[in-house]
Design a protein around this nucleic acid. Structure first.
Length: 902
RNA sequence: GGGGAUGUGGCGUAACUGGCAGCCGCGCAUGACUUAGGAUCAUGUGCCGAAAGGCAUGUGGGUUCAAGUCCCACCAUCCCCACCA
C-alpha cells in the first residue's frame, strides 16, 4: 500500500526544486512559435490576495503550462503596478516611506504566487515604482510631449515638423484641411487660431510654446477638473462615478487648475476602427465604442443678431457654431443655448441681463456633478438678451445659457429644437419658449395636447423645412440628415462634422507617490528633461501629505524643484501611465539603454492572451491602446493593438449568504472591513495548492460572478486523492466487477484529450475539470474490470498524469517521479490525441415517437441511415405506438435520434 | 433615458449547428467497511405518482417532426453609459 496523498509535504518540496532549477525561465527569443500570456498586473495592497484574486492567475498559469508542454516558447511574466494613492495613503497613516511599503507588499504578493505554484518567470519581475522602470515611462512622456497628430498623415509626427510648417506657411493650410475633413478636429484644442507665418515669427519663444501646446500629444492646460477633497488630488472623468471619486468615495468638486493631459481624442477614429482587429469580449468592445462616443452630424453657424448686440465692440460680427446630429430639424430650432463656460457669453450678453447671467455662471460653478445631474432635476438657465438668426429661415431666436449644455462636448453650444428633443422641450416648457414641429409622424396630427411627447416620434415627414419639406425620414432618417447637411454646405453656413465624446486624458496628480513628470518650466515655457538625464528621480521626503491647496508634496522640496534652466514640474503621473506600456517591458525587462531591444519586442509582442477584470474596460485598456498607437507611429513597435485576445474573469464573493431588507438573498464582496476574506494561504494550508487551483477552475464558468464555497475545495481534493490512488495503488480497494474493455478505456483517454484541449482554448475550465473527473471515474471502472497493468491502462495513466500537470503541477510532478519517469513532467510533452482511437464504434440512438422518448437502440457507428431507421421502428417502445399503422414521417438525426412522426 | 448581460434541481453548474434537459461536483439519503469517522467504497437523488405515465429550463404566445437554444411580448436581477445635442 502506497503512502497517502499529502500536499503539505510534496508542494514545498517541488516548489523549492523548481525555483532552484529555474524551471520556468523563459527561453530566449528565437524561431520557435511563441505564446505571450499575461495577467493584468496587480496593484499590491497591504492586505494581500484573497481567493478571488486567484480566479485569473490559476487559469492563465494552466494555459501557460499547457503551451509549454505543446512546445511553444511561452512568456508568462508578472509585475506590480506599485505607484498610486492606496500605498501613499497607507504610508502617510503609518508614517513610513512608501518605497519600503512597496517592497514589503510586493514581496508578500510574490510569496503568495509561489505558494499557489504559479509558473511565472521571476527573472522578469518588474515594478512600476522602481526607477529603472519609470525612467521609460518618462521617456514615453517626452515622446508624447514632442509629438503632434498630423491629420494629413493620420499619425503622430515630431512637433518640429509643425514648427517648420508654421514658420514657412503658417497654420492656415492645416486648418483648411481640418475644416474640410469631418474627422480631423481632434488634432488641436478647440479655438486654436489659424495664425500666419508672420504672426508665428513675431511671437516670443514663450508665446510659440504656448501655441504649440494646442497640438502636443502631452500638453498642459488650464482646465476645470474634478477635485477630490479627501485625497486632495484631481481625478479623471473616468475615475468619477455618480459624482463621487472612485477611490475615496468623496463627492468631487469642480476646480480650475493647470493640468497635464494626453491628447487621446486625436486617436478616436483609430481606437474605434482597430477594435475590429481584436478578439475581445463583445461587451468590452461595445463599452469602448460608447466611451469614445462617435457622433456624425453637422456644424452650423448662427450669426448673432446685430440689432440686439451691444457688446464692447460694435463692429465685430459674432457667430455661434453649434454641433447637431439632427441638421434636418434646423427649421424647428426656436432658441439657442450656450454652456455657461462658453467664451462668447461675456461678449453677447446685454447690459440688462448681465447681472443675472453672471450670477447664474457663478452658481453653476459651485455645484457638484452630483447636484447638476441629479435625477428629475428641473432645467435651469438664463436669457442672455442676445438673439441669433437661424440661417435656414432667417428667424430671430433668443440665446440662453444653461448648464445642461456642456462646454466639453461639441462646440459648447446647441440649437434647441424643443419639438424633437426631450431636454430642449423641458427647457422650452419651463421658460415659455416656442415649440415648432418639423417632423410630422405618419397618421398623426400634432397639436397642443399631443405635443408633450412628440420628441419620441423618430420617423415622419418633414414640414415647414424649406427645401427638404415633404421628405420622408424613412427607416433610419439618414436621407433627410444628408439632404439638410448638403443644403447647409451649399449655402455656406454649415458642414458635415464628426464629433467624439472622449476628452483629453487627464494625467497629472498633485501627489508624491507617482512617476515624476520630466518637465522643466523655463522662462520660454515648458521643456522636456534631456533623455540622457533620465530618470528624474523621486526624491526622499519627510512629509508625504499634499499641501492645503492641493500642491504636490514635491513642491516643498527646493532641491528637487531647482533645475539649471528653470523649475521642475512637481506633479506626478497617474498610474494609468505606468500600466499603459508595462506589457512591452516584459520583452526586455532589465535593459537600461533602451525601452527594449526591437528583436525582443518584435518577437514577443503583441500579447496573445490578456486576462483580467472587466472593471478596466474603458480605463487601462483604452489608455494602453492609445500608447501602443503612439509608439507604433514613432516606430518603437510594429503592432497597432497590444492585446490580440482578451478575457475577463468573474468576481468571487463571500460564501456567506446575506438577506437584504426586502428579503432577497445576495452575497457580499470579500473585504477586510467586512471580515469575510478567504485567503489562498488558509486554503492551501488545509487542502494544498493543487486542490485550490482545481477548485478555482471548477467553481463556475470563468466569466461568472459566483460565491466561494468552502465545500468545493474538499471536493476537488477528493478527486486528486482518487487520482493519487488509481495511479499508485490501482489494486487496493477494488469495487464490484465492471464492464469496461481495454478499447473503451483507450477511447475515453483520447476523447478526454480532445475535450481538454477544446475546453482550455474556449476558457471553459469548469468543463475541462469535469472531463478529467470523468476520465478518473472511468479508470476506476476499468480497474474493477481487471484492466490494471494492461498496455492500454499504462497508456491511460500516462495521459492522465500529463494532462494533470498544468492543473495540479505538484501532485503531477510527484506521481511522475514515483512512476519512475525522469524529472520534470513540466518539461514533458502534452499527450497527442489519436482521433481514430477516440471514435465510438457503437452508437446509442434515441427513439422518439412524436417527439417523446420511447426507447433507444444501439447500432454500429458504420450503419447507414436506413438501417438505423429500421432498427428504431422495430424497438419495443416504438412498436407500441406505431401499432400496425404507417408513420407519416421518420426523421433521423445522425448519431443522435430517430423521431417517428405519426 | 440609451446600451448590454443573465434567469435551468436544495447549491455551483452542463447541454457542440435546433436533436435524450440536468454531465461533473457539492449537499442529502441508504448500505458496506470500521473501536471511531468530517476517511474510503457502493447505490440512489428534478417534481408528481405505487406504477404506467405525466409535468418541468423566469412568464405568456409563436415557428418546427423537434425549442433551454430561434422569433414576438412581458417579468425579474445585474452591469455599463447618461442633460453627450
Amino acid at each position: 500500500m502506497a503512502d497517502r496523498y499529502n500536499p503539505q509535504e510534496i508542494e514545498p518540496k517541488w516548489q523549492q526544486r523548481w525555483e532552484a532549477d529555474q524551471l520556468y525561465k523563459t527561453e530566449p527569443a528565437g524561431d520557435k512559435p511563441k505564446y505571450y500570456i499575461l495577467d493584468f498586473y496587480p496593484y499590491p495592497s497591504g492586505e494581500g490576495m484573497s481567493v478571488g484574486h486567484a480566479r485569473n492567475y490559476v487559469p492563465t498559469d494552466v494555459i501557460a503550462r499547457y503551451y509549454r508542454m505543446k512546445r511553444y516558447n511561452v512568456l508568462h511574466p508578472m509585475g506590480f503596478d506599485a505607484f498610486g494613492l492606496p500605498t501613499e495613503n497607507a504610508a502617510i497613516k503609518l508614517k513610513v516611506d512608501p518605497h519600503g511599503l512597496n517592497e514589503k507588499y510586493s514581496a508578500n504578493y510574490v510569496r503568495q504566487y509561489k505558494l499557489m505554484g504559479l509558473s511565472y518567470d521571476w527573472s522578469r519581475l518588474i515594478n512600476s515604482a522602481h526607477d529603472d522602470y519609470y525612467k521609460w515611462t518618462q521617456w514615453i512622456f517626452i515622446r508624447l510631449f514632442n509629438s503632434w497628430y498630423d491629420p494629413r498623415q493620420d499619425k503622430a509626427t515630431p512637433i518640429d515638423t509643425l514648427v517648420a510648417e508654421l514658420s514657412a506657411q503658417g497654420a492656415q493650410a492645416l486648418f483648411d484641411y481640418i475644416d474640410g475633413h469631418a474627422e480631423g478636429a481632434a488634432t488641436a484644442n478647440k479655438g486654436t487660431p489659424a495664425i500666419s507665418a508672420e504672426q508665428w515669427r513675431a511671437m516670443s519663444k514663450r508665446e510659440q510654446n504656448e501655441y504649440l501646446s494646442n497640438f502636443r500629444l502631452a500638453f498642459q492646460q488650464e482646465s476645470t477638473v474634478n477635485w477630490d477633497p479627501v485625497d486632495k488630488v484631481v481625478v479623471a472623468d473616468e475615475e468619477v462615478e455618480g459624482g463621487r471619486a472612485w477611490r475615496s468615495g468623496a463627492l468631487v468638486i469642480k476646480r480650475t487648475i493647470r493640468q497635464w493631459f494626453f491628447r487621446i481624442p486625436a486617436y478616436a477614429e483609430r481606437l474605434i476602427n482597430d477594435l475590429d482587429t481584436v478578439d475581445w469580449p463583445e461587451q468590452i468592445v461595445t463599452m469602448q465604442r460608447n466611451w469614445i462616443g462617435k457622433s456624425e452630424g453637422a456644424e452650423v453657424e448662427f450669426q448673432v443678431s446685430s440689432s440686439e448686440f451691444r457688446g464692447p465692440n460694435e463692429s465685430s460680427r459674432n457667430s455661434i457654431t453649434v454641433f447637431t446630429t439632427r441638421p434636418d430639424t434646423l427649421w424647428g430650432a426656436t432658441f439657442m443655448v450656450l454652456s455657461p463656460e462658453h467664451p462668447l457669453v461675456s461678449q453677447i450678453v446685454t447690459d440688462a441681463q448681465r447681472a443675472a447671467v453672471e450670477q447664474y455662471i457663478a452658481s453653476a460653478k459651485g455645484e457638484t456633478d452630483e447636484q447638476r445631474t441629479a435625477e428629475g432635476r428641473e432645467k435651469t438657465g438664463v436669457f442672455t438678451g442676445a438673439y441669433a438668426i437661424n440661417p435656414v429661415n432667417k428667424e430671430r431666436i433668443p440665446v440662453w445659457i444653461a448648464d445642461y449644455v456642456l462646454m466639453g462636448y461639441g462646440t459648447g453650444a446647441i440649437m434647441a429644437v424643443p419639438a424633437h428633443d426631450q431636454r430642449d422641450f423641458e427647457f422650452a416648457r419651463k421658460f415659455g419658449l416656442p415649440v415648432k414641429v418639423v417632423v410630422m409622424p405618419p397618421n398623426r396630427v400634432i397639436d397642443g395636447d399631443t405635443l408633450e411627447r412628440a420628441y419620441e416620434e423618430k420617423q415622419g415627414v418633414m414640414v415647414d423645412s424649406g427645401p427638404i419639406t415633404g421628405m420622408n425620414t424613412g427607416e433610419d432618417g439618414k436621407a433627410c440628415i444628408r439632404a439638410a447637411t448638403e443644403y447647409c454646405e451649399e449655402m455656406g453656413f454649415g458642414k458635415r462634422r464628426v464629433n467624439y465624446r472622449i476628452r483629453p486624458w487627464l494625467i497629472s496628480r498633485q501627489r508624491y507617490w507617482g512617476t515624476p513628470i520630466p518637465i522643466v518650466h523655463t522662462p520660454d515655457g515648458p521643456q522636456t528633461v534631456s533623455e540622457s538625464a533620465l530618470p528624474v528621480l523621486l526624491p526622499q521626503v519627510k512629509d508625504y501629505e499634499p499641501g492645503p491647496n492641493g500642491e504636490s508634496p514635491l513642491a516643498s522640496i527646493p532641491e528637487f524643484i531647482h533645475a539649471p534652466n528653470g523649475e521642475r514640474e512637481t506633479d506626478t503621473m497617474a498610474t494609468w501611465a505606468c500600466s499603459s506600456w508595462y506589457y512591452i517591458r516584459f520583452a526586455d525587462p532589465h535593459n537600461n539603454a533602451l525601452i527594449g531591444r526591437s528583436e525582443q519586442i518584435d518577437y514577443w509582442l503583441p500579447v496573445d492572451m490578456y486576462v483580467g477584470g472587466a472593471e478596466h474596460a474603458v480605463l487601462h485598456l483604452l489608455y494602453a491602446r492609445m500608447w501602443t498607437k503612439v509608439l507604433f507611429d514613432i516606430g518603437v513597435v510594429k503592432f497597432i493593438e497590444p492585446f490580440k485576445a482578451l478575457r475577463n474573469q468573474g468576481m468571487i464573493l463571500s460564501p456567506q449568504k446575506q438577506v437584504d431588507e426586502k428579503g432577497r438573498e445576495f452575497y457580499e464582496k470579500m473585504s477586510k472591513s467586512k471580515g469575510n476574506v478567504i485567503t489562498p494561504d488558509e486554503v492551501i494550508a488545509e487542502h494544498g495548492a493543487d486542490a485550490l487551483r482545481g477548485y478555482e477552475m471548477f467553481i463556475s464558468d470563468f466569466t461568472q460572478t459566483v460565491p466561494w464555497s468552502t465545500q468545493g475545495v474538499p471536493g476537488v481534493r477528493r478527486w486528486l486523492d482518487r487520482v493519487w490512488r488509481i495511479v499508485l495503488a490501482p489494486n487496493d480497494d477494488k469495487g464490484p466487477a465492471a464492464q469496461v474493455s481495454a478499447k473503451d478505456l483507450r477511447r475515453v483517454a483520447h476523447q478526454t484529450i480532445l475535450r481538454y484541449e477544446r475546453d482550455l482554448k474556449a476558457f471553459s475550465f469548469n468543463t475541462m475539470i469535469a472531463a478529467m473527473m470523468e476520465f478518473t471515474n472511468t479508470l476506476y471502472k476499468a480497474r474493477d474490470a481487471g484492466l490494471a497493468g494492461a498496455p492500454e491502462w499504462n497508456e491511460s495513466i500516462d495521459i492522465l498524469v500529463r494532462m494533470l500537470a498544468p492543473i495540479a503541477p505538484h501532485i503531477a510532478e510527484e506521481l511522475w517521479a514515483r512512476m519512475g519517469n525522469a524529472y520534470s513532467i513540466h518539461k514533458a510533452a502534452f499527450p497527442v490525441a489519436d482521433e481514430a482511437a477516440a471514435k465510438e464504434d457503437e452508437i446509442t440512438v434515441v427513439v422518439q415517437v412524436n417527439g417523446k422518448v420511447r426507447d433507444r437502440v444501439t447500432v454500429p457507428a458504420s450503419a447507414d441511415d436506413e438501417t438505423v431507421k429500421q432498427a428504431a421502428l422495430v424497438t419495443e417502445g416504438a412498436k407500441r405506438f406505431i401499432d400496425g399503422t404507417t408513420p407519416r414521417q421518420v426523421i433521423y438525426v445522425k448519431g443522435r435520434l430517430v423521431n417517428i412522426v405519426m
